[in-house]
Structure formats: structure tokens, C-alpha cells
Design a protein around this nucleic acid. Structure first.
Lengths: 252, 252
DNA sequence: CGCGCTGTTGAAACTTGTCAAAGTTTGTGG
DNA sequence: CCACAAACTTTGACAAGTTTCAACAGCGCG
């Protein structure tokens, strides 16, 4: 159904897959030896291009493969019957998509490109077969899944106990850190998502997101111009996270 | 450090581990053949008893094993620097604990027994070795981890978009369903956790939990007496979940 | 060049949190 | 076995934070 929307590109010509990929230090093959890297090149036989706004997969579709983001930016979201939506994550280069689908052999969320993107297709049955040969790959995959669980639990903390300002501060610092890991500036970046999507991720309404960003700007923590963010005072942002007035009052 | 608190029991005598366990249809070995079941009996060499209030593991401790709840009831929680806590889950018989620790080789939460409990110890390095021999076990383990991710994303939805009544309704229905799967009544059960712990899980204050439960009782949906819950009107509870007034108003 | 989507800001409403007091249960030690 | 303390629960009144509703501004795409 999505075939006319997403180009599929065989990698026949350039056998470059993982061993030549500049994301190999961020992506699934982290820590593999050169030999092992060569082995898994054969795993990644195709890529898919997803245009902005199109979905890589949707809830209920049969699960067949994991996807590693090669370029671009995605969101994953789940929908309630009445239309309310929860964005469960934003994924950038080197991050895996599709782990939700393994359990039920159907995808459990929608993965939607927020800009024109490209992913490497990792057929899961093949991947599991490789695990038998490359123990390091198996182990690393388990780590990736485990870290996803820990990440999700961090989001629970965010949604469960933090106030709006703390959520936004945590969000901005997290983005900054992930951009940094990819070689971009820690202080300046463009948001790929709308205020509404940020709000949905953080359990806030878009107006609240807008207001808090404005407040951060007034306080000299950041500069906001539409989707462009400049972090002026990273330490100040971190303080928003750690310093709750009532806490310092009670214990200070 | 916790050794004087938690008895360790070798299973030397009865080599019954998984193949004789009445939880094998709920626990990790789901779907294994009799042969395969026999093989993994050797994996589970010990059990640990954890008394109520004691921890099975704590944040930062080195990760060595997963734990399958044999009897009892646990919570997992993460703590913020200022003392705020988020309960990330409640685990009952047949459910796995410790998946959070794989990624960093350190546990990322506290796992605390809410009643006297017993767990089977599954040394993770051993487990990964078994995966090479029993492909079905490997695959099933991936499913378990994936389902944990999906569960966490369901909690995000709960915390991100649902109102207090919906959260409680979802919580009660979830417990009911899990007790049912273990052969207990779907309509009647005892909560193992306090109002505070429920609140921490659902992102609410204990007073709100108490008020909503009282309201449910007034509305004839449930009967509450301290920790004892009787679900009078399961369909009514489900309606709390699906039917938001403003939605029906807008689209009705 | 204008229409639509996205973002900003204000005022009022609502849900949930905070504080406080009292009731209940559970556990412990005499 | 009772008594008391500690922990947990319930309920009320009030406060605070966030959402809702609304109006308007800005940017980008056709």
C-alpha cells in the first residue's frame, strides 16, 4: 500500500552497507570487529526512502523488519480510539525503529517521517539468524532493547512527576545531547517537530509548550525563533531540571 | 549486601525448575517443546526469597541476572535526585524483572517486594548461551522484551493523555486481566500496593487515587474496602476508558 | 499573493495538587 | 492479648498549574 510513497533501493551496486557507514559507531553494529562488520553487510540488502509526512509503518501492519535511520527524522505515535494521540519518541540517524513489532508480530505504533528520510531495512528473521554466528551482535541487540526500555521509563518519570518547565528542559537537553553525539552543535539546532508534537510527547498542550519556551527565552536560557533553538545557558536549563523550589526550601 | 535479607535456595534436590513449574505457560519458556523445557531446567539453578519491603536489586548495582517472579508481587521504581519517585511497573507471578539492567550492565531501577516473594534467578550470560542452542527461546525472549516496550508505551499514553478516572479504570482493568490469566477471580482481588504507589505509577497524588476510587464506588462501578477491590460493573469501567464526554458530544 | 498551517498570547475554567484533620488498619512490645 | 505507635486512607477546603477557548501574527507553499 505504501509502495508508491516510499522508494525502495537495492544496495546491489555498492556493497557498502554497515562497514562503510559513518553511523556504525551509533547504530546497531557498535563495537563489532572489522570482520564481524563485514559479515553483517549482507544483512542490509535494502534501504527505503520515506518522504516527509509519510509513514514507515503503521499500527497493525505485519512486522517483518527493524529499521535503522540512515538520514532524516521520525516520530512514533500511538492513537486512542477517540483520536487522542501520544508521541512515544523521536528517532534520528543511527537509531532503531520497529522494536515494538516483535512481540505481537504486528507493529504497535505509527512511525512517521518528520522530514525526508532514509532507513536501512534489517529483516528480523535474518537478524536473529546472525545472532547465532555473531554473539557480540546478539548481546549488543539486547543492550539496545534494554536501553529502549530504560529510555521509556525515563519518559514515564517525565510524564509522571515533572512539571511543564522541567519536561521542556529535559527535552531540550536530550535533543542537544543527541545532536552532539552526531557531530552537530550542542547549542543550536532546528526542531523537526511541531509544538503540537512536542506537547504530545511531553503530555502537554501545544499552548503550554509555546508558553514555556517563551518563558525560557525571557529568562535568558534559550533563544527561540520558530523551529530554531539556540541554547544560551545550558547550566541554567539543567538547574530547571534539578532545582525545585519546594525541595530547596525544605532541605536548604 | 542484601545477602542477609534474602535467602538463597539451591535447587539441587528437586531438579524441577521450569519443566515442572505451573507458571511455564506464562513465563519465559512459553511455547517451548518438552525437550527444550528439559534443557533449560539447568539454567535455573537458584531461587531467591525476598521479604516484603526488601529489594531484589537496586539502581546502580551490577547486572548479572534476570529474575522470574515465582510467587509474590513486586514494584519497580526510579528516583529523582530530589526524592520524587516514579513507579514504573508492578510485577506478578510469571513476569520478568531486570531487563532494565542489560543495557548499561547496571540496574536502572529499584525492584522491591510488596509481599514476601520468591524469584527464579536466570543468569543472563547463561541465558544468552542457551539462545544459540534453542532458537525458539531466543525468539521468545525478544518477544518478551518487545512486549515490555509496548507496555511502557501504553503507560506513556496513560500518563500523557488520560485523565485521572481513565488512568484508574485502565489500571483496575489491567490488574483484573492479569489476575485472571493466573487463575484468580477477574472481579475480586486484593491490591498489594498502597494508594501512594498506585498514584506514583499513574502520575497522581494518593489523595486523587483515593477520591477517584470513592467516586467509582458511588457510581456503582466497584466496591472498595481498603486494599480489597470488587469490580461490580466491568463494562462500566471500560466505558470510563473509551467514552470521553467531550468526544461523544463533538461527534455524537 | 493569499490561504492554510503553525505559533503566540491572554483570560477564564477546570482538573489535580496541597494542606490539614480525622479515621482506620497493622505491627510491635509490654 | 491489649495498647500504642506508625503507616495508610479518607475527606474537605483551598491553591496552583495546565487546559480550553479565542484572537491574532507569521511563515511557507501553491
Amino acid at each position: 500500500m505504501a509502495s508508491h510513497l516510499t522508494a525502495v533501493k537495492p544496495l546491489a551496486a555498492l556493497r557498502e552497507a554497515c562497514s562503510q557507514c559513518n553511523l556504525r559507531e551509533l547504530c546497531l553494529p557498535v563495537g563489532l570487529s572489522a570482520d564481524e562488520l563485514g559479515q553483517i553487510d549482507e544483512l542490509v540488502k535494502l534501504r527505503r526512502r520515506i518522504l516527509r509526512g509519510q509513514s514507515l509503518y503503521r499500527t497493525g501492519e505485519p512486522f517483518t523488519a527493524l529499521y535503522a535511520v540512515k538520514t532524516g527524522f521520525f516520530k512514533t505515535e500511538i492513537l486512542l480510539a477517540d483520536g487522542r494521540e501520544q508521541v512515544t519518541g523521536f528517532q534520528m540517524a543511527g537509531e532503531l525503529l520497529g522494536l515494538d513489532g516483535i512481540g505481537m508480530e504486528k507493529h504497535a505504533c505509527n512511525a512517521i517521517a518528520l522530514e525526508d528520510s532514509e532507513v536501512c531495512v534489517l529483516p528480523f528473521a535474518d537478524l536473529e539468524r546472525y545472532f547465532h554466528e555473531i554473539a557480540a551482535l546478539q548481546h549488543h541487540f539486547h543492550k539496545v532493547m534494554s536501553r529502549e526500555i530504560v529510555r521509556d521509563q525515563g519518559v514515564m518519570m517525565l510524564l509522571g512527576v515533572m512539571r511543564a518547565e522541567e519536561r521542556l528542559a529535559a527535552f531540550l537537553l536530550n535533543l542537544s545531547q543527541r545532536f552532539t553525539a552526531r557531530g552537530y552543535s550542542p547549542h543550536e539546532f532546528n526542531l523537526r517537530m511541531t509544538r503540537n508534537e512536542i506537547g504530545s510527547y511531553l503530555g502537554l498542550k501545544l499552548e503550554t509548550v509555546s508558553r514555556v519556551l517563551s518563558r525560557f527565552q525571557e529568562e535568558g536560557l534559550i533563544q527561540v525563533h520558530q523551529k530554531h533553538i539556540r541554547i544560551i545557558d545550558p547550566a541554567g536549563l539543567k538547574k530547571v531540571l534539578s532545582a525545585r523550589q519546594d525541595f530547596t526550601e525544605r532541605h536548604g
